[in-house]
Design a protein around this nucleic acid. Sequence first.
DNA 1: GCGATCAGCT
DNA 2: CACAGCTGATCGC
Length: 478
Amino acid sequence: MDTDTEFEIEDASTAGDDLDADGFPISGDESEPKPPPIEDPLDESSSFASDFYRCGSDWSRLIEKKESKSLVQRDLFQVWGIKKPAMAEESKARVSSSNQRDLFEVWGIEKPRVSVPARKRARKEDGNGSGFGRARSCPFYKKIPGTPFTVDAFRYGSVDGCSAYFLSHFHYDHYGGLSKKWSHGPIYCTPLTARLVKMCLGVNPLHICPLELDIEHDIEGIKVTMLEANHCPGAALIHFRLRDERTYLHTGDFRACNLMQSHPLLASQHINVLYLDTTYCNPRYRFPPKEDVVSFVVRITRDFIAKHSKALIVVGAYSIGKEQVYIAISHALGLPIYTNSSRRRILQSFGWPELSGKLCTCGDSSALHVLPLSSLRHENLLDYMKTYKQRFTAVLAFRPTGWTYSQNTGNQLDLIKPTCKGNITIYGVPYSEHSSFPELENFVKFLRPDKIIPTVNVGNAATRDKMQSYFREWLKAL
DNA sequence: GCGATCAGCT
DNA sequence: CACAGCTGATCGC
């Protein structure tokens, strides 16, 4: 009956390499890691509890969109969602220089071609394990041993032995490689992520297999359950139970929280191997709770609006994520949310009435705008404000990312100093959608897995050793 | 001309 | 540093 083939986890290219205890190559960071030995099956098991669990909005409604459209925006006005105005000469020159138009053009000479050999230097190995670069083969920590499954492994073409490709969430460094030409196998993900894969990437729906959260699905004889990851909309932890009762949890990207620990699959059942999002696995990262950051943002916004009657509030965001920041401002101050049509389609596709109902299609209709994080620079924001003529006279912008966290500030958000240039004020706020170090510690101490495989910051052997030493400490016998 | 990918950058 | 991309150059169709 058990006819499925054991997943091919050995790469011929690395068959001779020495590996450390965690399955990473000892010889350096350039070579391909070899898989760790497969864990022995343990016998602990218990019946599947059918309780549902949610932490956040109901992210499960289905809205089908026919068209496929790229997220890629070519010009700032498109990003801003406004018509390109006839620009004043000085403004034009400024935009031109900030776009790094080269000196050769200014000098009026032809730009010399970069030689091909110079461009073909050794590619930098990516440190976060996302595996960019076609020549690489799929790293072991994206393969689930004992199954024909991979997680977030779309940029390696057809992965040997893989008959089901899981996508944890819709961020580029995880879905990279997916396109309308995808034909290497079925893609399993949450329904919300499935809609984005179809709508934004144009992947053939025949390949997309949505899995409802908190339902145990049987895929090729393996029991698979998607759990809310508290990361971005549609993000899931993926729980695998093999026929021999071996149990693996792949966190994708996640922010561990107490509510997660009440999920029946985590509360009362053993996990053999934990594939862990170790983005901030360093004791210096101790973010405040997201709620505290949101309250802070709302308070700063209130104060700013009290001082500037014609204020424009800008929240920076990637494709998806950080929604709670601008939803909270919108709610607290009674402002609709303006963003360009591309992002609007994405936000609409979530199927959250409380968000969809607040979106407006014209920038003049609201003082609350959502822009790409990359465009939150003083010069950009000044230009942006000017395109609305006299509608706005000052800008307050927020960059909500864990990277802005500083140890000096710690949890005292009031110590955060914005950068100000003229009427443009930019706050970096430590709103993280990844676990902080204490949150990782708490989660691991709660789960007590037999083995932990980090999936981020694995490009450096010293960092890997450091992380494993934290894991050992956390898992010490009580 | 278009889509995909790559190096470089934040 | 790099959360998750963005940009311009290049390559293949």
